[in-house]
Design a protein around this nucleic acid. Structure first.
Length: 447
RNA sequence: UCCGCGAUAGCUCAAUGGUAGAGCAUGCGGCUGUUAACCGCAGGGUUGUAGGUUCGAGUCCUACUCGCGGAGCCA
């Protein structure tokens, strides 16, 4: 038996052959090719064996028939356990009965390692069991599909902004103070300078970037130490935050709807196969085109009242409130002009009504909740000073931020999109923990 | 932090207060077209922990531990 370490040394006797990926098999019908991968499942029927090989791009059934391969190779395939690593040689054949439409008639098999008994079987498992083995769970076709879609969403996000003249401006992860003063943050010692905190948002820094470069976005991990235990929360998650100088609330909403349309339509085009694996009903996704419905906070409250929900004006919407509101629409809905007191200190007040903030939330359909939160920012130095005092925030920590209003202040706006909630929504998942390779949650930091 | 639910074989789950079982996985045997293959045989258990009630507890009671879902907070 040949193991990994002597794989390259011992290729003698194992014919040199063109290495292809499962996803490319349609271009090699009738050809003899090499596949490298892992045993996804294996079935035996006496003198014929079926080995499902996965290589990260797909799964293909390899047929090992007695008489078609050497006695030695036929015997070797008996020992193949799930996830054993193998290299196979064979001829590609179109086969309508096979999932994927292609099969490999095996000529030779090289076993790199016979895997130990694999804990994740093709049967059902509980979430805790799978989460403990997340590093192996990633290999299942469902998780592969999710991670590939996550990748394409990230790429779509970058492509969207890059194609519109935005510049990526990274914000720091270690920060001296809470950005918004509300969330509970992860705390750490920072040399001799006292406490530092893991960022909950890159937005304040993105504002500095916007006043330097005009159109910017930051895209990175953010952290919340709140003891949230719901399907929509992670302790560590990714957020993309565009920020644009001279944008007002309306410009902001236009950007948000074009952004969402681009992401969803791009993923629909690029990931039909993966969405099929996830059995995602894509009807709601196909609707994601501008214009998205825009309603005011007041109108949203009216919807809740009509549905018989006891809701007091001035509160923020809870998870079920968001679901009820979003159910009235066939695509994401933008809610704007929130009561200022439930929103962050840096949001600009409505000049017509000082109780309202020029804020904007986008609620995803199907109960996926808030995926975007944003606003026009307060550009008046005096107003901002007043808010900082009102919120009992340490002014010293925000002096640099106040400078943005001292030196050429302009109207500007931006928003943040939660990557994991977006992935969860597009993939139709029931929990955000599957949208990230290694989720960080209140009672889990391993693997 | 609060509310609700749960913990039984490696995994997923059964078991009226009365001898702890099944399917899958594993091992052995059979099968040349299987599709989470199938058929036969075998091994596999301190029922989360600690107490209590009872002739008798997986089952009822108390506490604890861990997990899941939700609320609050938020993306």
């Amino acid at each position: 038996m040949v193991y990994c370490s002597d794989f390259f040394e011992q290729r003698q006797g194992f014919e040199l052959m063109k290495w292809v990926y499962v996803s490319d098999l349609s271009h090699h019908v009738g050809e003899a090719v090499e596949l490298r991968g892992w045993v996804y499942n294996a079935r035996s029927s006496g003198k014929i064996r079926f080995v499902l090989l996965r290589d990260g791009t797909g799964v293909v059934q390899c047929v090992v028939a007695k008489g078609q391969v050497s006695e030695d190779v036929f015997e070797k395939t008996i020992t193949l356990t799930q996830e054993s690593s193998i290299i196979v040689h064979g001829t590609v054949r179109k086969e309508d009965r096979a999932p994927g439409g292609y099969e490999l008639d095996c000529k030779d098999v090289k076993v790199l390692q016979v895997a130990h008994e694999y804990p994740i079987t093709p049967k059902e498992h509980g979430v805790e069991f799978l989460a403990d083995r997340r590093h192996l769970w990633l290999r299942s076709s469902r998780q592969v599909a999710i991670l590939r879609i996550r990748h394409r969403i990230v790429k779509a996000i970058r492509d969207f902004f890059d194609g519109r003249g935005f510049t990526l401006v990274d914000s720091p992860i270690l920060t001296p103070a809470a950005c918004e003063g509300t969330s509970t943050l992860f705390e750490t010692e920072y040399f001799d300078l006292g406490k530092a905190y893991l960022t909950q948002s890159g937005q304040l820094y993105a504002e500095a970037g916007a006043l330097a470069l005009g159109k910017v976005y930051c895209f990175g991990p953010t952290f919340r130490a709140e003891k949230s235990k719901t399907r929509r929360h992670l302790s560590e998650f990714w957020m993309v935050e565009p920020e644009v100088a001279f944008y007002d609330l309306n410009d902001n909403m236009e950007l948000a709807e074009e952004f969402l349309e681009y992401i969803v339509q791009t993923v629909l085009k690029s990931s039909a196969q993966e969405l099929k694996v996830l059995e995602r009903d894509t009807r709601f996704l196909e609707n994601v085109q501008k214009p998205l419905p825009r309603i005011t906070y007041d109108e949203a409250v009216e919807i809740l009242k009509k549905k018989g929900i006891d809701f007091e004006w001035g509160n923020d919407f809870g998870g079920t409130d968001e679901t009820v509101i979003s159910e009235q629409f066939d695509r994401p809905v933008m809610v704007h002009h929130y009561p200022a007191k439930v929103k962050a200190f840096y949001m600009k007040r409505d000049p017509q009504n000082d109780n309202l903030a020029l804020a904007l939330d986008v609620l995803a359909p199907e109960g996926y909740g808030e995926i975007i939160g944003g606003s026009q920012r307060e550009d008046s130095l005096d107003a901002l000073l007043h808010r900082i005092r009102e919120h009992n925030l340490p002014q010293e920590a925000f002096e640099w931020y106040l400078d943005l209003r001292r030196f050429g202040s302009v109207p500007h706006a931006g928003f943040g999109l939660g990557l994991e909630r977006t992935v969860s929504w597009i993939c139709g998942l029931d929990h955000v923990r599957e949208t990230v390779p290694f989720p960080r949650m209140i009672y889990r930091i391993t693997p």
